Simulated assay, not measured.
Amino acid sequence: MTLAIIAGRGDLPALVAGATDEVPLICGYEGIALSGLEADLTFRLETLGTLLLDLGTRGVTQVCFAGGLDRPALDPSKLDAETLPLVPMFMQALQAGDDGALRVVVDLFEKTGFTVLGAHEVAPELLAKGGVYSAEWPDAQMREDAEVAATHILEMSPEDKGQACVVARGKVKAMEDARGTDAMLADLSGVTDGILFKGPKENQTRKVDLPTVGPETLEAAHRAGLRGVVVDAGDVLVLSPEKCAVLADEYKLVFWARTGE
């Protein structure tokens, strides 16, 4: 066993695990319920140093982060001896934005000697393939809105916040924050003819936290009254694409992975 999956919420960890030839070691964060998997090891921020040692002892050489994790708070009373020297790095990560924090974590694993693989490197079939998944096709307004949305995500990249926004008739109506896409859509009101757009921030690390959509995304977009879900082909993970296409058709949504922009 050479690959360990640092697993969080959602279906992505199980999909990544299922794409491997060799059964990976599953590492679950304490208190996070996994979907379709059982954790071989559990850890928390205060025991991360011990986890790193344990992975090395077990012969792990590659690590893949998959699934959602909330940014943890550091509880000094729960620090173990192996993790105590890492506290300055933790504090740097906790004060950084989302991508900045993830870069610190990736750097820690790589300095310890592990190769960090992106979920798309383990399961390349999950990357959005260019084209329209749904029976409904994007019209001129939706294509314009997608361009506005993509530009907005890039312009907001220095603030290191979300990877998703809602645009309607050329205007940005909502921007994802640390609470995630579902919370943004749940708070949405009074928006008609809008789209949900997801794409990576400028210079975002691809090793961790690539934007992801799945069946729940289509359902949330439908509940919010949107016209479609648009992603950047090759830069977004699509979970259960066949089910996503079925839901898009059921809800009469456009589901489009745009290319060439």
Rank of each mutant, 00 (worst) to 15 (best):
193 D>G: 08
118 G>D: 14
174 A>W: 00
40 D>M: 12
27 C>M: 06
89 M>K: 11
136 E>H: 11
144 E>C: 14
217 T>N: 05
121 E>R: 15
146 A>K: 13
164 A>L: 09
13 P>S: 06
24 P>A: 15
230 V>I: 04
39 A>Y: 10
244 C>W: 04
218 L>W: 08
107 D>W: 07
148 V>Q: 04
138 P>W: 08
36 G>Y: 04
171 K>A: 13
30 E>H: 15
64 C>M: 03
192 T>I: 07
149 A>I: 02
151 T>Y: 11
119 A>P: 04
30 E>D: 12
90 F>Q: 09
261 E>I: 07
243 K>G: 09
53 L>N: 10
131 G>Y: 11
183 A>L: 03
242 E>N: 09
79 L>H: 07
81 A>F: 07
153 I>C: 07
259 T>Y: 01
77 S>C: 10
48 L>V: 10
178 A>G: 13
1 M>N: 11
172 V>A: 00
194 G>N: 03
227 R>S: 01
28 G>L: 15
49 G>T: 06
128 A>N: 09
258 R>F: 14
188 L>Q: 00
56 G>E: 06
218 L>V: 03
50 T>G: 15
224 A>D: 11
212 T>F: 08
105 V>Q: 01
222 H>W: 15
40 D>W: 15
84 L>Q: 06
33 A>I: 14
156 M>E: 07
11 D>N: 02
54 D>P: 10
158 P>D: 10
114 F>L: 14
227 R>P: 07
258 R>D: 00
113 G>C: 08
33 A>H: 13
198 K>L: 02
175 M>T: 11
117 L>W: 15
196 L>D: 02
90 F>T: 05
